[in-house]
C-alpha cells in the first residue's frame, strides 16, 4: 500500500484541460437538444459499439479514459448496456455481419439518443469502403449526429465529438 501511495504522489495530477466542442463535426442540427440536456442531467452514459473496426479506433477510445484526458472527470462514463446509455459511440465501417447487432443496439437505447461515429471508417467507410462484406459508413445503418474523422482520431478529437453532440448553444 505504501508503495502505491508513493507512486500516486510521485505521479501527481497529469490531467489536461479538456478540449472545446467543435461545430465542424455536427451533422444533424439541433436534434432533440433540449430533451438531451434535460435527460442527461449533467452526466452522460456512453455505450461503445465496434461495428467492424480494425481496432485502432478502440485504442484511442480507451485513451480518452486515461488520466491525461480523464473523460470520467467530465461526467462522461462508459456503460455496459445500451439500456443505460444516452449515446452510442460507433467505430468501424459497419460490417454486414454486424448490421443487425448495431440496429438492435440502437433500438435498445432509450430515446432521445445520440450517435457519434468515430474514425474515417465510421465517417465514410474509410479504407474498407463498401462491399459484399461492408455496409460502409455508420449513417448507412443508423442515424448519426456527429462524425469524427481521423485514422484513428486522437483522444482530443473523440472528446470534441462527444461534447459537440451534447452541446447546446447558448443562443438556441
Amino acid at each position: 500500500m505504501y508503495r502505491i501511495l508513493r507512486q500516486i504522489a510521485r505521479t501527481g495530477i497529469v490531467s489536461e484541460t479538456p478540449p472545446r466542442p467543435d461545430e465542424a463535426y455536427r451533422l444533424l442540427s439541433a436534434r432533440l437538444r433540449a430533451e438531451v440536456l434535460r435527460s442527461f442531467a449533467g452526466a452522460l452514459s456512453i455505450r461503445h459499439v465496434d461495428a467492424g473496426s480494425c481496432n485502432g479506433c478502440e485504442l484511442e477510445i480507451h485513451a480518452t479514459s486515461n488520466p491525461v484526458y480523464n473523460l470520467e472527470g467530465l461526467g462522461i462514463r462508459f456503460v455496459a448496456s445500451p439500456r443505460h446509455a444516452d449515446m452510442l459511440l460507433v467505430t468501424g465501417p459497419v460490417s454486414r455481419n454486424m448490421e443487425t447487432a448495431l440496429r438492435r443496439t440502437y433500438d435498445a437505447t432509450p430515446a432521445p439518443r445520440l450517435v457519434v461515429a468515430i474514425g474515417d471508417c465510421g465517417c465514410t467507410g474509410g479504407i474498407f469502403g463498401e462491399s459484399y462484406a461492408s455496409a460502409g459508413r455508420v449513417s448507412k445503418v443508423i442515424p448519426v449526429d456527429v462524425a469524427v474523422p481521423g485514422c484513428p482520431p486522437t483522444p482530443v478529437q473523440i472528446i470534441q465529438g462527444i461534447l459537440t453532440a451534447i452541446e447546446v448553444r447558448a443562443a438556441s
Partner: peptide, 10 residues
Amino acid sequence: GYAHKGIEKR
C-alpha cells in the same frame, strides 16, 4: 467473424 469486412477482396 463479426468484423469480417472483406479485406482480402479489397
